[in-house]
Structure formats: structure tokens, C-alpha cells
Nucleic acid binder design. Structure first.
Lengths: 189, 189
DNA sequence: GCATTTGCCTAAAGCCTGTAGGAAACCTAC
DNA sequence: GTAGGTTTCCTACAGGCTTTAGGCAAATGC
């Protein structure tokens, strides 16, 4: 019997594809095994189980998003940086909905601290450097950015904002404009 | 054999409790049956199955949230209304995390239109009446409110914003202040 | 070439979903 | 009060996913 060449990395990569195609709920040891033409039991020497697989997808997504956001941010500041930051997340979520979904899985503290999650808040702070906001307002602003972009993306994914005639892209631009103005009003708030 | 008195309403109510106690993922036909000391197969004449049960929790949560938000909004306007609106959602999510989670489930279009979901956007528009914002900006603003509050609540639930010394309530108040100012700057963009 | 390690296998137990058909409890009405 | 009909819950079963245990075959190393 020829070997399939299973590794944790390849299993997680397949799980990520499956998540994007069919949703995170379909990411199971069984379904991933099927992709490799292998029995489900064979995965268990490489990964801990279904939860592990999903956590792996989450960590992959956090890394990939941080990479893309960092790239989008290079050489930009102010409103440009804000739009690039937000756009990178939105584009990623649209291209990889299952991975994005996985990225919102709760991680235990240790795993979270070792993940690319920490880079995300650093990147948000990089955006805010264009706005001259001191602590503790800077932390508040990091949370605001995370909230509004994650919130928008997740509502857009769920509903598509589809039951009104107003275009979602227009709302996105409007939101970026207003956030830019909000941040520009600075620590003086 | 004494009858357990199963009804769709009682099953959904038990599912909602279970969701709050153990998370939406634990809401299964099996687990709910256990609560009634009944075989899982017995549920299937009352509800369609596990998905139905979760959808039922979602619809319940949407109704309950709309009720609470409407009550919180009564007699308020401006920043007061904004804070009451946002606070009602946040309080509900903290008191009923599983129901809140369920409320974000995607519903098919028909179900969504018949749900209390439509009341939520009406309530957001009620808050915005205190700010004199015309269409299409009003729609943009409805989406912004939904995004930022849902985003904040879901990030707060996932991470507790716990790995920094800055208090989450302080960020919440800061966010309300800034949003109030943002909306007050009005249609003048 | 032979021994060891590694990789995938089969087997099996346990839990969950959902369908089918049966029996007991409840209701209605005579 | 009891006969008939309906409702409610039951048992039985088929099928899927998870995960552990133990085996054989392929790859690796000496």
C-alpha cells in the first residue's frame, strides 16, 4: 500500500481548503481523510483530532492575514493606511471565508499568545501612528478598529446587506471616511 | 409511561438554556432530549432536527433582543439612546452568550424577513432620528452601528480584551463617545 | 540484508442523527 | 365508562463521525 504522505501541515492546508469551500463546520477528521484517500483513523498519528485541525486552520489564517495586512500597510499612512488595513481583512475574508471563520475561534491563552494574533494588534497600532493618539486612547482605538472591521465583515458575510438598495461598498467607503475623521479628531476628543 | 409534555416551544427554550450554559455547539437533539429524560427520537415529531432547534434559538434570541432594546430605548434620544441601544445588546450577550451566538446564524431569506431581525434595523433607525442623518447616509450609519456593536461584543466575548491593562468598560464608553460625535457631525460628512 | 522506525491499515466501541413502526396514554363521544 | 381515534413517546435500526488499539508493510539506517 503506497503511502499518502500525510503531515500536520498538509492536513491543515487541506482542512483550510475544505473550510473555504464548505464552511468550518464541514472540517472534520473524516472529511479531510477523504481528501487524501485515507482512513480517518490514519490522521490521528499526525494531529490530535478534529479540534486540532480547526485550531490549525485558525493559526494559519491568522498568519496569512497578518502577512497580507503587513504588506498592504507598507509605505502607507493616514487614511491610506486605514483603508489598506481594513481592505486587506475584507479581501481575505471574501477570498477565504472558512479560514476567516476559523480565525475567530477562541484559542486558549497560551496558544493565542504564540499565534500571529499579537501581530494584528501591532499592525493596528501601526495604522494609528498616523493619527497621533496617546494611551489609553490608543488601546481604545485599536479595539474600535478591530470591532468595526470584524463586525462589518461578519455582518456582510451573513446577510450581504442584501435587503436594501444601498450598496455595501458605498457603506464601506463611508465608514472608512468617518473612522478617519473620528481618529483625526485625535486625543482631543 | 408518563408523558414528558414536549412541545416545540419547550424544546427551543431548553435548547436556549443549553446554549447559554455550554455553547451553541452543544445544542443537539440528543442533549435536549436528555434534559427531558426522553429518547432523542422522540423529538422528531415536534421539531425537524438539530438545525431546526438552533434556528429556533436564533429566532427566540432575535425576539428577546428586540424587546429589550425597544424597552431600553423608550423615552431616550441622542447619546442616551445610543448608549441604551448598545448597552441592551451587550447586556444580552453577556447574560445569554449562547442565544447571542445563535442570533448570528445565517437564516434563509424568508425566515429572516419573518423574524424579529427586521425590528433591529428599525430600532437602529430610531436611534438615528436623534442625529438628523438623511439617506443614504442613514443606511450607512445603521450598518456602522450594527458592525461596531456586534464586532465589539464578539471580540469581547472571545478574548475579553484581557491581555492588556486597559479596562474593557473604558473602551466601551470611549467608543460610545466617539460614535456619538461621529453621528453628530451629521450629514455634513 | 536485516532491524528498526514510521505510516497507514483494520477492528471496534461510543455517541449522534434521523426514519419506521409499535404501544401506551389521552381525548372524545356515545 | 368504555370504544375509537389520535397523539406521544417508545424500541429498533441504519448510517456517519470520533478516537483508541494493535497489526502489517514500507521506508530508513546500519
Amino acid at each position: 500500500m503506497a503511502r499518502a504522505g500525510l503531515t500536520p501541515e498538509r492536513l491543515v492546508a487541506a482542512a483550510a481548503e475544505l473550510a473555504d469551500e464548505a464552511g468550518l463546520a464541514q472540517v472534520t477528521a473524516s472529511a479531510v481523510a477523504r481528501r487524501f484517500d485515507v482512513r480517518a483513523a490514519s490522521l490521528y498519528s499526525h494531529i490530535g483530532g478534529t479540534d486540532d485541525l480547526r485550531t490549525g486552520v485558525a493559526l494559519l489564517a491568522l498568519r496569512e492575514m497578518a502577512d497580507r495586512v503587513a504588506e498592504a500597510l507598507a509605505g502607507r499612512s493616514g487614511r491610506d493606511a486605514l483603508a489598506a488595513f481594513a481592505g486587506a481583512y475584507r479581501d481575505y475574508a471574501r477570498a477565504h471565508p472558512g479560514r476567516y471563520e476559523a480565525a475567530r475561534l477562541p484559542l486558549d491563552h497560551e496558544t493565542a499568545m504564540a499565534s500571529a494574533g499579537v501581530r494584528h494588534s501591532e499592525l493596528a497600532r501601526a495604522v494609528l501612528r498616523g493619527y497621533d493618539i496617546a494611551e489609553p486612547d490608543q488601546t481604545h482605538a485599536v479595539r474600535l478598529l478591530g470591532s468595526v472591521f470584524h463586525g462589518y465583515i461578519s455582518l456582510e458575510a451573513a446577510t450581504g446587506f442584501s435587503h436594501t438598495p444601498v450598496d455595501s461598498d458605498a457603506s464601506w467607503q463611508w465608514t472608512l471616511d468617518r473612522l478617519d475623521a473620528l481618529l483625526r479628531s485625535g486625543s482631543a476628543g
